[in-house]
């Protein structure tokens, strides 16, 4: 993709983010941070590419280490968000 199409996606996504985040209820700001943390680990995609196609030996290990770090975040982030959100659920039943 050329730079301008990427930039367009980026700028529009910033606006989407702006409106979506303002609609998040303040009570859920902590889960919001946890889940944004988890999704920002989509950077694992870069780490996977690096690890998969390493002609340079160092790059492969950088990639693998990146995968471990991002995985901690993905699994940890989604799990802790799920744990927090489950607490909000219990009260609904009450």
């Amino acid at each position: 993709m050329d730079f301008i199409s990427i930039l367009s996606i980026f700028v529009l996504a910033c606006f989407v983010g702006y409106y979506v985040v303002w609609s998040v209820t303040p009570a859920l700001h902590t889960p919001l941070m946890a889940v944004t943390n988890a999704v920002s680990s989509v950077i694992i995609v870069g780490a996977l590419i690096a690890a998969a196609a390493a002609d340079v030996p160092g790059a492969k290990w950088l990639g693998l280490l990146g995968i471990v770090l991002a995985s901690v975040n993905i699994f940890g982030g989604f799990a802790v968000t799920a744990r927090m959100l489950a607490m909000y659920k219990k009260k609904e039943k009450k």
Partner: peptide
């Protein structure tokens, strides 16, 4: 940071996510 990497890799998922997370943190 994720968005910048998304630019490098030309990856829409990373760019969208980066923009979302970036604006989320900024708004908070």
């Amino acid at each position: 940071a994720a968005a910048a990497m998304g630019f490098t890799l030309g990856n829409t998922a990373m760019i969208i996510t980066g923009a979302l997370v970036g604006s989320s943190g900024a708004i908070l």
